[in-house]
Nucleic acid binder design. Structure first.
Length: 605
DNA sequence: GTAATGTTGCGTAA
DNA sequence: TTACGCAACATTAC
């Protein structure tokens, strides 16, 4: 119990990447302060909420996770909840410290580039205000800064490197217990922030207005600092301005869901022990072939260390029973190590990690729809598009890819599953990413990463960017001659085409002989099966009834063109931080004309 | 320096 | 089902 003679200990626990109570080292550190007052807080983060595009499915997942956490707090202490404050942390936290008499700020370490910049500001302001800051690692198996240090300060670029680096650190810590009691917040009069939103204008010292979107008037998300009910409640979809009908994912968020899901996976010891990612089917749905735990790792509704150790314990029991386990990197612990690898690479490179421009670790390729430079965008010279439209044809391909109307059913089914449900299997992501970049459209991986960022419920910046680099052969992986076919690859897993029938229902009656290449079906059969293959997919019916688009290009032709172009780009050998990339002279190195168009000549081999 | 290796390719032959 | 050529990258082990 707190000693009444001592100064009150008023602790804000700032939830960000950790919407859970179980195995949270930072939460444990906060509670071990033995607070007289404890305030579990969520601040509306302008980066998460506005800058990055978040689709309805991920929004829904976030709000479900917050609701679940809030309930768990309430179950431990009826006066408690997750207190949601609708303002950017950099501007609102100092106001809260003053108003609530805060002595300590505690949070889980976040090494994403934008988060580090944000947290540096917050920590500096806390020091100025005399608030003690406590930070603990817990989002990853290891402190990623320590991984980077053990890798010689360099980005971890391969499984071998990450394995060596973590070997030097040892085993991840075992999970810590969830709290069994939570101290009270302030009395309501103390919590009430009436008038606080008017204090200050929300602009940081360097002139950056982190709350501009709040006040823009075009966004409904800011209904006062305490929310429309003036009770710090978790926002509703309506408050965010999302139509509930747009939330179509069947996957649910929240710590309690995560722990149930994990327990169900762990109970199947054969599945856990023998799991090998490349042997799980990208075409499986209901049930999917993998664990579906990735969204919970993203929101921190599941502790990655609990996942790791629950799996390790199963494998240990199997070893003792003389049963064999799959090994790194294809097994479950291997999957978690890939996550560490991408986090550590992001931590080592910092802000340029998320793009090509200025990024030393990424190859520069003469993609279509290349990103404009940050300077152009910052100066407002970029116009309405943040990428260069060097080819109208490629932009059409990109939009058709995004909307799932390429005319290749395997690609379209996956992209429609992604849009509807916010999740597709890892190998499905490989298929569509290869198709958009080096194995079809030759469109910049950055365009694809943006679409995934918007649509995936498990979107994790480091993993998403890293995987797009991998698939586009710009970093981590270089065997660009291994190209996924939009026809063969799916067929290998799903010869009946059940995934296609599910997500492209207009093709549901097609014979399996044509399901991956419906344009080859005779017209009479197309009529019989109730869907004509014609047009570009801009509408789903015509006077003949249902229609499905013709393929938007000859894949074999495009594969050859892309392969030659990749060979040439590797020969040119530029990287994101080379001066030719910064000053635009890369076009000359690639033999492109002034308008950036490709001359019709054979590429150098 | 050379050879082996790298979570997850495809098409063809046996 | 397995093996190999395809045309060939980067890293690591030796």
């Amino acid at each position: 119990m707190p000693n009444p003679k001592q100064k009150a200990t008023v602790v804000i626990y700032w939830h960000r990447t950790d919407l859970r109570l179980h195995d949270s080292p930072a939460l444990q550190a906060a509670l071990s302060l033995n607070p007289t007052t404890f305030i579990p807080l969520w601040t509306w983060d302008p980066h998460y909420v506005y800058k990055s595009r978040v689709g309805p499915n991920r929004w829904s997942h976030l709000l479900q996770s917050q609701t679940d956490l809030s309930k768990s707090y309430k179950a431990l202490n009826p006066h408690q909840k997750l207190w949601v404050v609708r303002e950017a942390p950099q501007t609102v936290l100092p106001k809260l410290w003053a108003r609530w008499g805060v002595t300590h700020l505690v949070f889980e370490k976040d090494c994403d580039a934008y988060a580090r910049a944000r947290d540096e500001v917050v920590v500096r302001l806390a020091e100025e205000a005399g608030v003690e800051v406590i930070v603990r690692s817990g989002r990853t198996l290891f402190d990623v800064d320590e991984i980077v240090a053990k890798n010689g300060g360099k980005a971890t670029m391969s499984m071998a490197q990450i394995e060596k680096a973590v070997e030097k650190i040892g085993k991840p810590d075992r999970p810590v217990d969830a709290p069994t009691a939570i101290p009270d917040p302030l009395e309501w009069d103390g919590m009430d922030l009436t008038g606080v939103e008017e204090e200050g204008d929300g602009v940081l010292e360097d002139g950056v207005d982190v709350n501009s979107v709040h006040r823009s008037g075009t966004d409904k998300q800011y209904a006062g600092i305490m929310g429309p009910g003036r009770d710090f409640g978790v926002p509703t979809l309506e408050e965010i301005g999302i139509d509930a009908g747009d939330v179509r994912t069947p996957h649910c968020g929240g710590e309690s869901v995560a722990l149930r899901l994990l327990a169900r996976c762990i109970a199947d010891e054969e599945y856990i022990g023998r799991f090998e990612k490349p042997n799980t089917s990208p075409a499986a749905f209901e049930p999917q072939s993998t664990t579906l735990l990735s969204p919970h790792l993203h929101f921190g509704t599941l502790s990655v260390r609990k996942f790791w150790w629950d799996v390790q314990d199963v494998m240990e029991r199997r070893r003792k029973a003389k049963k064999s386990n799959a090994s790194i990197p294809t097994n479950l612990p291997g999957q978690l190590l890939f996550r560490e690898m991408y986090f550590a690479a992001h931590a080592a490179v910092g802000e340029p990690f998320c793009r090509t421009y200025g990024n030393p670790m990424v190859r520069f390729i003469d993609w279509h729809l290349q990103s404009k430079s940050p300077e152009e965008i910052a100066h407002g010279d970029a116009g309405d598009k943040l990428y260069e439209v060097d080819s109208d044809e490629a932009e059409v391909w990109f939009l058709r890819w995004k909307e799932g109307r390429t005319g290749f059913p395997w690609i379209d089914a996956l992209m429609r599953q992604l849009k509807q449900e916010g999740w597709i299997h890892h190998l499905g992501r490989h298929s569509v990413a290869c198709f958009l970049t080096r194995g079809g459209c030759y469109v910049s991986w950055e365009r694809g990463a943006e679409v995934f960022e918007e649509m995936l419920i498990d979107h994790e910046t480091a993993c998403n960017i890293g995987n797009w680099m991998w698939l586009s052969c710009t970093a981590f992986f270089a065997q660009f001659y291994r190209c996924y076919s939009p026809i063969t690859f799916g067929k290998k897993w799903d010869p009946e085409g059940n995934l296609i029938r599910r997500y492209c229902p207009e093709l549901a009656k097609f014979d399996k002989k044509y399901i991956y290449e419906p344009w080859r079906a005779p017209i009479a059969d197309q009529r019989k099966w109730g869907c004509r293959v014609t047009g570009d997919g801009s509408s789903s019916t015509n006077e003949d009834g249902n229609i499905y688009p013709k393929p938007m290009f000859d894949f074999d032709q495009r594969r050859t063109i892309c392969l030659d172009a990749m060979k040439n780009a590797y020969h040119v050998g530029l990287h994101g931080d080379d001066k030719e990339v910064k000053d635009g002279s890369w076009r000359k190195a690639f033999g492109l004309d002034e308008g950036g168009k490709r001359p019709n000549k054979k590429q150098k081999t």
